[in-house]
Amino acid sequence: MTTDGRAILDFADRKTLVRVLLGFVVAALVLYLVAVGIGTEDLSRAFADAKLRWLALGCVSTALCLVAWGKAWQVVLEVAGIDEPFRKLVVTYFAATFANYVTPLGQAGGEPFIAYVLSRDTEASYEDSLASVVTADLLNLLPFFSFAAVGMGWLLWQASLPAAVRPLAMGLLVLAVGVPALTIAGWRFRERLARGFMRVAAPVARRTPKLSVEGVHERIHDLGAAFDRIAAEPRALVRALAFSYVGWVFFALPLYFAGQTVGIPIGPLLVLFIVPASTIAGIVPSPGGLGGVEIALTALLIGLVGLTEAEAYAVSLVYRVASYWFAIGLGGLAAIYVISRN
């Protein structure tokens, strides 16, 4: 077995697998109870005339989204001096996405693990991998906020932002202001942050046989150097940002296709707001936000589109099949290939 295959298996210890399985069981129970509360007969009627070709288009859109984000990843890696063939890198990206989607809270903090897989699957150091992954994720936030702002602006112009939706809108506004502010502050005061981290990490390193203060300091220095190399190539970052925008378009389209699947048209501008707003629910402690995203989507579709509970829940389930379960299936196959590659 190659080192890239061991990267997946080393991380997937028994405790992690139990936590993943428990997360899926709890989320499935929540989704079942919601379905029972809405009424299984009403849901069956909502699915009665489903057009699967639209669902297939949603799955294709998800695949294209991951390919575009994988390309943005490659651009950032090239800036860091890591030249990997895209056909190999995109498989690694799919496999890392699978691990991120099945791990509880993976959506809220899976970058260290993705960087671990990337460093084991390529010639990149862990520091270069982590800097590249964090940079690509930050670039993905710009289209996230841009599309949300366009959708929110349209809703406010139409004076159709219900009271029930305002907390999510406020959450998006806080993120839109807070994340860039924290990023700028973190970059400006990165040396102070590094020194503060060392003051905290040094006592721990002295008491841990596998760590040393010098080793931790070297890792922090290498990580800072990796960020500096990436920041020195603004043109490449613009290219990566373009792929991030393309990826976000394909990330949002499955909701439009989900509506078409069950015969309910959802306006593109509404999609631009609903998808980012529902993504906030992805921080719930379940794999890929399972359960939380579906409930948030249902509430948004009821409040903004005027659907019945059964219709909104049906659209939410179809959307998650195309955007989440299909990504897990595709990423799972990629993970198996990564394990058995060569």
Rank of each mutant, 00 (worst) to 15 (best):
F257A: 15
G259K: 14
A296L: 05
V318M: 02
Q260G: 10
P268T: 10
I328C: 13
G332D: 02
L300N: 12
G332C: 00
A252H: 10
I274V: 15
F273D: 11
L297K: 07
I264E: 12
G303F: 12
A299C: 05
A277D: 14
P254K: 08
I280H: 05
F273M: 10
L272H: 13
G288D: 02
V293D: 08
S286R: 11
L255P: 04
A310F: 00
I264Y: 13
Y256M: 09
A335C: 00
L330S: 12
A312M: 03
A258K: 05
F251T: 07
V321N: 08
L269N: 05
A334H: 06
P276S: 12
A314L: 08
S286N: 10
P265D: 04
P254L: 07
E311D: 09
G289D: 04
W325A: 03
L270Q: 14
A310D: 01
I328K: 07
G247Q: 00
Q260L: 15
A252R: 02
A296S: 14
V305I: 09
G263T: 09
G329K: 04
L317Y: 07
S323H: 03
A327E: 01
F251G: 03
L333S: 13
G291C: 06
T261P: 06
P285L: 06
F250V: 03
I264K: 12
A335E: 00
I280F: 09
V318P: 02
V275K: 10
L317C: 09
L253V: 15
A312R: 01
V284A: 10
S316D: 06
I274Q: 11
W248Y: 13
V321R: 04
G282Q: 14
V293F: 15
A312N: 03
V293N: 11
F251N: 11
G289R: 04
L253W: 14
A299G: 14
A327S: 11
G282E: 07
T261G: 06
L330A: 15
S316P: 05
